[in-house]
Nucleic acid binder design. Structure first.
Lengths: 370, 370
DNA sequence: GCCTATTGGGAAAGCGCATTCCCACTGAGT
DNA sequence: ACTCAGTGGGAATGCGCTTTCCCAATAGGC
């Protein structure tokens, strides 16, 4: 038994398919009440479900909104996804998901697939790369997006504009003030502490990461501090962990007693020597910060005593981490919602959607210990 | 400029649409090489992207796989989603996402929406409720699913079979041995520790939660321990936190010195009285366990000294939590992958898909302190 | 060298729906 | 009473593609 069609409903109700269509799906012309009831009843009894594909084909619009993320299991993206999902519900649309691991090639593919499905809008949440080897991929992605937009699609990008977009028609950008916030974080940290700074960043060219690094350096400089060294690593927990290990080794080497690996448990009585102010580590996202913290701890170092750590994003799942992580709060869900809304053409029915605002949130992990 | 169509490509290549279709999309009949090349080139130069809606309409199959979760931002679900997404990529399909907050009504709606889009298969990841007030909603959901299956759809459910499914055709279940694993966790815990047990569970009727509770009790009983008290609360971090507060109050009340709320920092020297073995708290999922732990800590209690805590799921993002959380590892991503695969009709091209196996993982949070 | 397989391409019929036209009918206006 | 708008419903067309069916052309068998 195949799904029943509009025609069947119409026949059962004794009307024409045209009429049935008019009553069952919003139309300008609503048939008479009695007829409408008959049709609705027929539909009900047949368990009629309109074929969205056919509908879409007929009115060329699909009620789909495409979402591109690097990895849906990453809490940063899943938070955004939730916002998008919510906005989709408001718009009575469904979200189509694509995880791309950040590879421009598969992002291009995803855009093409969304275009093929005639998605009404596309939200791109992943940060772009701008390394030399990516320019080709980015250009292809941009071309694909341009084509999509020329055909009437709307695309919203979280973070920064698409790299090589030719048009601006159909493009929406949800600006995230990564640079400013990172600067602010740096200046607040610099205000309360003495030690040096180190930055754990993502691979060079990853825009979000670069923005945050740049901002942080600016903040330091504004506070009269020297620029921090930047450790490049992968943009995830394990990258943070690796960098954390490297840093831990340095800290221990710099200590009076020299290196004395104590593996797992709390340090065997931290050397009470008049150590210099602890190093402050800024990881460009929370997940990396957590990785770094774990690495330090695995080397017997304590936070914030032996080193302090700050992240970025304020990932919800990580809030119960101890010591509580200093970070920059970002309204991730709201960002997703806004992106999806702006791509829907009605960002609050009016002027500019209220810009995204984050908030520096200092917690235990960067406190100075007496 | 609207997107170009197959017909246009065909015209440009000087062939019929039929031929163009045959070369551009997999068909049994592949036209001659020269013609094929001409068509491909025409398609390329026009930037042709097939209209998936039309394709779907014509061959009635959409290349879509629907995924239903309670909340995509919950790490449990996002991990599963990642697995589903991966499997989808293998099958060259896209995933359609629906978050339902676990409400049967909106799950039913989601299923209908998936059916409307002619999704090839549906994966339901959320646990079912079986409270009296849910039977109606569940029945409707089941009816919707049955209809979907009768029309050729395939549905895979994570955890337990759909509550009121009439048919079995088209249904696939990825069994998760919640009960057995919880029992095993209980017995391993009981083997090494003395104290009493308390369970923090989700609302009554939530199947996953109930299974885990039941299993844990069985494990205790098998170890000759009395059944644990069960605290019902909401199935998330804040539920865990609330329950944790309640438990903390009790612990402190039971202490020699009586209640002495110390708000934030480490307990002001834990009373060195010969306290009884600490209470062991089992929260039915990791997120709740973390919430409970945070609550205890906020009351100045230390884990595992003043109470021990265990969770369930082994959420990746929570692995760096300190003290490391004892839990039951579940291959969430694999579960998602398997669900999506089994619904695709080819679960490993053969016999039963290797059953899901979890693993009790005892860590610091349940260690006995000297 | 004729007849039958076989191959390669085109014509056309849908897939299920929205929508534009068109027609029959009603009620109001003078 | 006759016309004119206005209304409510149906017939038909098309959205872009797949696929069956058909036809021409070629190759092979005796």
């Amino acid at each position: 038994m195949a799904a029943s069609t509009l025609t069947e409903v119409a026949r059962l109700a004794g009307v024409s398919p045209a009429t049935a269509s008019r009553v069952l799906n919003g139309s300008a012309r609503i048939p008479g009440k009695d007829i409408a009831d008959r049709v609705r009843q027929a539909a009900e009894s047949l368990g009629y479900i309109p074929n969205a594909q056919a509908q879409g084909l007929a009115k060329s619009s699909s009620g789909l909104i495409g979402l591109i993320v690097h990895d849906i299991a990453d809490p940063y993206f899943s938070a955004i996804a939730r916002g998008v999902q919510e906005a989709a519900r408001e718009q009575r649309k469904m979200v189509l998901l694509a995880s791309t691991e950040g590879a421009p090639a598969s992002e291009k593919e995803a855009v093409a697939a969304f275009a093929a499905r005639r998605a009404d809008s596309i939200v791109i949440a992943g940060s772009r790369m701008s390394r030399p080897e990516d320019v080709e991929g980015n250009a292809e992605l941009a071309a694909e997006l341009d084509r999509y937009c020329r055909n009437g699609g709307q695309v919203a990008v979280v973070g920064h504009a698409v790299v090589g977009a030719a048009t601006e028609e159909g493009y929406h950008v949800v600006q995230v003030p990564n640079e400013e916030l990172a600067a602010q974080l740096a200046s607040e940290l610099a205000a309360t502490r003495e030690g040096e700074f180190v930055i754990i960043g993502g691979p060079e060219g990853l825009l979000t990461s670069d923005d945050r690094i740049r901002g942080f350096q600016q903040g330091l400089s504004a506070a009269g501090r020297p620029a921090a060294e930047v450790l490049r690593t992968s943009f995830n927990r394990s990258g943070g962990f690796d960098a954390g290990l490297a840093i831990a080794a340095r800290i221990k080497a710099a200590r009076p007693g020299g290196a004395a690996p104590s593996d797992d448990r709390p340090a065997p009585a931290a050397p009470p020597a008049a150590a210099p102010a602890p190093l402050c580590i800024f990881a460009v996202n929370d997940v990396m910060a957590i990785g770094a913290a774990a690495a330090l701890r695995s080397q017997g170092l304590r936070i914030p005593r032996d080193a302090t750590v700050a992240g970025f994003d304020d990932i919800e799942t990580l809030r119960d981490f101890r010591p509580a992580l200093s970070t920059v709060h970002l309204p991730l869900e709201e960002i997703g919602r806004q992106a999806a809304r702006s791509a829907a053409g009605r960002d609050g029915d009016g002027a500019a959607p209220s810009p995204v605002t984050g908030k520096v949130t200092l917690r235990r992990s960067t406190e100075t210990v007496a």
